[in-house]
């Protein structure tokens, strides 16, 4: 089966440890605009627009507060670990559920995004864009794990 790209099942629990704080802090960050001074550092950027020089520059060092980057990476790395690690009993049926969950997540993600295009504007839409960076992965994780949970529960009631 197509398990050649999946991580070992050990990654899943560590993935949750990285993903959940990332998501919780990320949402808090979006709502309350948290700022932590010690996270303002010099970073190397391939492309940037500094507020003092509005034209886009290429390849240089700027000062940036990296809280949002750190949280984003937590969600991506934790999310990938949770989403794409093998189940302990990974087999063809679970692979099928994995595929169906991916399709479901992409459809729902773009469906909601299309509606958001029509209903959200200006800086509200900027928030939509930020969330939409992560919603395909999050939706997949929710759907796939729910399907697995449902099927494992029904198996316990048999015979």
């Amino acid at each position: 089966m197509n398990t050649k790209f999946l991580l070992s099942s050990k990654f899943k629990k560590y993935g949750w440890l990285i993903l959940i704080p990332g998501v919780v802090l990320g949402i808090l960050y979006m709502i309350f605009d948290i700022h932590l001074d010690f996270l303002s550092i010099n970073v190397f950027a391939i492309s940037f627009d500094e507020s003092t020089r509005p034209n886009r520059e290429l390849f240089g060092f700027i000062e940036d507060n990296i809280l949002n980057e750190v949280l984003g990476l937590f969600i991506i790395i934790g999310g990938l670990m949770v989403a794409f690690s093998k189940e302990y009993d990974e087999d063809e049926f679970i692979s099928r559920m994995r595929l169906e969950s991916l399709v479901w997540a992409i459809l729902w993600n773009y469906g909601l995004l299309a509606i958001a295009f029509i209903l959200f504007y200006e800086s509200s839409f900027l928030s939509v864009m930020v969330y939409s960076m992560f919603t395909p992965l999050i939706l997949f994780i929710l759907r796939f794990n729910w399907l697995i949970w449902k099927s494992r529960k029904s198996v316990k009631h048999e015979e």
């Binding site: 189940e87 063809e92 697995i148």
Partner: peptide
């Protein structure tokens, strides 16, 4: 395979 696979086959779902 997993137990879910056998169960879902018997239920005609897979």
């Amino acid at each position: 395979v997993s137990r879910q696979t056998i169960n879902s086959m018997e239920l005609g779902k897979y």
